[in-house]
């Protein structure tokens, strides 16, 4: 599954742009499928069930990218792990909100630097891979190889944070029960590092988003962080204040825009996230 999850479908009506994206991603080891005709996308996804990520343009003849993503979500309900990434030449607030409602994980503006494209693809395929494995239907059929892939993934994340290659021992015999046990272990680690009564789900989602952005060398604003939490904006804002009080995150004024505040993990917040990820990598490795 590890190889399959690195399969990306790229949609753009401009064949030359398709070729550039395909070349950049294939150099980075991704397996790409391309479509310049959005009308053929649903059929392609039907015949290529291994695709984990759909990277799409928005303005295309015949169908709008948002409509296309809606059709994908409706038609492929059984593939909740499918990651949608938008790359558009005309970013608007409306299309960004529509994309987020359809659970697009990234919304980016062209032109996109090669390094950014690879980072986005890596994050999206990682999410697809993990979600696919943890999905009740596919998870039940998870193989030893699948679990090794997750262990290796967690090890890579931990290694990346410590500036070294993460070596995680191979897993032994694995089945669905073992997978569930691993999930419980992960939850136990989370409760230990971040006691449940002090850390509601929305806060956890925002901390994870900040860690993910930090690893990708990106940052976000208060508004952007609110979107990462699956709760109303007012609740998210309250959670942000709580996290600031707990010393896990800090807000900073954007020098270029007085209306915007950036949010980042504090040293303490980052240390706790590192502890969490390292512990998860160890739990997976020793399972």
């Amino acid at each position: 599954m590890a190889a399959a999850a690195r399969r990306i479908l790229i949609i753009d009506d401009d064949r030359r742009v398709l070729q550039v994206f395909e070349r950049v991603l294939e150099r980075a080891g991704f397996d790409c499928v391309t479509a310049s005709d959005p009308a053929k996308v649903l059929e392609l996804l039907h015949t290529e069930p291994d695709i984990g990520v759909v990277l799409t343009d928005l303005q295309m003849p015949g169908i709008d990218g948002v409509q296309l993503m809606r059709q994908i979500r409706e038609r492929f309900v059984s593939r909740p792990w499918l990651q949608l990434v938008v790359v558009t030449g005309n970013a608007t607030l409306e299309s960004a909100i529509d994309s987020l409602r359809l659970e697009a994980t990234e919304y980016l503006q062209k032109p996109l630097a090669a390094a950014d494209l690879v980072q986005v693809a890596t994050r999206a395929t990682t999410r697809a891979e993990t979600l696919r494995l943890l999905n009740p239907k596919t998870g039940a059929a998870a193989s030893v190889g699948d679990l090794k892939a997750v262990a290796s993934l967690a090890g890579q994340i931990a290694g990346e944070m410590h500036g070294s290659e993460g070596a995680v021992p191979a897993l032994g015999a694995a089945n669905a029960e073992q997978l569930l046990r691993l999930i419980w272990q992960i939850q136990a680690v989370r409760r230990e590092v971040f006691p449940e009564d002090r850390l509601p789900t929305a806060s956890w989602e925002m901390l994870s988003e900040l860690m993910s952005l930090e690893l990708a060398g990106r940052r976000t604003s208060v508004g952007g962080l609110c979107l990462a939490a699956s709760c109303p904006v007012t609740t998210a804002l309250r959670r942000i204040e709580e996290l600031v009080e707990m010393g896990l995150i800090a807000k900073e004024q954007d020098p270029a825009d007085a209306r915007r505040q950036h949010v980042r993990l504090t040293a303490s917040g980052r240390t706790k996230m590192e502890q969490f990820l390292t512990r998860v990598a160890n739990e997976l490795g020793s399972a």
């Binding site: 742009v17 070349r23 150099r27 303005q59 558009t88 030449g89 996109l112 630097a113």
Partner: peptide, 19 residues
């Protein structure tokens, strides 16, 4: 619309130069 098209052109230029 024009700026959208310019961005697509810039994607080609920067992408191919990086490659």
């Amino acid at each position: 619309q024009l700026l959208h098209d310019v961005n697509a052109s810039l994607q080609l230029i920067t992408g191919n130069l990086e490659l």
